[in-house]
Design a protein around this nucleic acid. Structure first.
Lengths: 229, 229
DNA sequence: GTATATTTTTAGGATTGGCTAAATAGATTA
DNA sequence: TAATCTATTTAGCCAATCCTAAAAATATAC
């Protein structure tokens, strides 16, 4: 029904509209043309073009000069793409042995293969994972996300133990850096000291004491461990 | 480097040129425009169009009104597509649990994801299979096919035991029919009687005696079992 | 060996999806 | 409020890939 190009626009609009409105909401926030152009590394004119096509297909609501938002159909499509993307990432990492910073572009290709049957079977084969290798939630077939307690590492008080559950940046340089400092999903981190001046912190990872910059800490998501009394 | 459309043309040309010249040969046989058009369900004019582009890219050799043949580059590309196609089919059947008649169209999509790394890892994950679920040989990374002794079921003499190793037809109706009569890859078949009039035969499958029409028998490939003395 | 039939190519056009440059609407500031 | 800046749209193009109809080349038949 929809082309690759259309699907990529839907994904971009979904992403931007979620960023505009972090809390999961029934409605889709309105995003400006320019933001889409930037996100997709294309010209604003091309965006206007495509948006008009998507609007004709009732995948987005569009009023000239007012920005775009996804219709329910459009959002469901975007969420299914996200589902496929993240399931493929799990296959690539868990089964094929790719590193977590190598799978994004491949999943970007694979997600466009449309087949509910394939998606279902992939999900089953992988054991219906709820999160992908970066800790992002995988929507289920109905488009529902699994919620989870998570905060940026910067929010932890000293002497708190926490488990890494996700990242807020997916760039290869960032993920490589995490590899270098021993941070990975499911690793335990214990905060020793916080420097509020620059949000950097001293932490304990695998028994090693390290300093993590604020820039990095802000992009690590953790789930605090309840303290044993 | 090459688009999806170009890749599909290369595959079609490869297929036709192999059919024209069954023995594996260094050279690629010349195929007529019309044959490609039929194979791809498109118009002859479109074929001429695309062939000119492929010729500009040195993927085919082309002389007006003379037909096309693949260059070495073109043939290598086609063989890599075949490799990916068949590896994906193995994944779909062996790991995801699809039936052998359900995987062709999906593999047709998946094969276009170009990544030597992905292909390699897929191959390793699947245990470097030499044949796909229909018994077709999977070329290795160097493009070499595993050869194997195989003959159409119609070639067997009565009282010969053989193992089904492949099919020469991939249509769903044909594969479904095989399912119905209990024929599957690796099944043993024992020929009891041959009727040369119409090539039909009485065979033993799983201890059950059945009649197989010539049309069906011709499309079943078997490897005769050496007779115990 | 010419007439006819078939195959192939050319010509011209549609659609998708991108671009640049120019025009216009909306937002910001003095 | 007027001037200016920015965001958005329009206009006009381009390339890829398909199409139909017509022309040209080749093959076949008498």
């Amino acid at each position: 029904m929809s082309t690759r190009a259309e699907e990529n626009y839907l994904k971009a609009i979904y992403k931007l509209s979620e960023m505009a409105k972090p809390k999961h909401d029934r409605e889709s926030a309105t995003v400006p043309t320019n933001a889409i152009a930037q996100e997709m590394h294309t010209s604003a004119a091309s965006v206007t073009d495509m948006i008009q096509r998507l609007s004709d297909k009732h995948l987005v609501d569009y009023e000239k000069y007012r920005g775009v938002s996804l219709t329910e159909t459009g959002r469901n499509l975007a969420i299914q793409l996200l589902r496929r993307h993240r399931l493929w990432e799990v296959l690539l990492v868990e089964k094929l042995g790719f590193a977590w910073n190598e799978v994004h572009d491949l999943a970007e290709e694979l997600e466009h293969v449309e087949s509910p049957e394939l998606t279902d079977r992939l999900d089953t084969f992988l054991g219906s994972p709820k999160f992908d290798p970066h800790g992002d939630p995988i929507p289920n077939a109905e488009g529902k996300f699994t919620l989870r307690q998570q905060v940026p590492l910067t929010d932890l008080l000293p002497e708190t133990l926490a488990v890494v559950v996700g990242v807020r940046e997916h760039s290869s340089p960032f993920l490589n850096h995490l590899d270098e400092i021993g941070v990975a999903i499911h690793k335990e981190i214990c905060v020793r000291e916080r420097f509020s001046y620059d949000d950097s912190m001293r932490v304990d990872i695998d028994g090693e004491l390290r300093t993590i910059s604020g820039k990095v800490a802000r992009n690590i998501l953790v789930k605090p461990k309840p303290v044993m009394k």
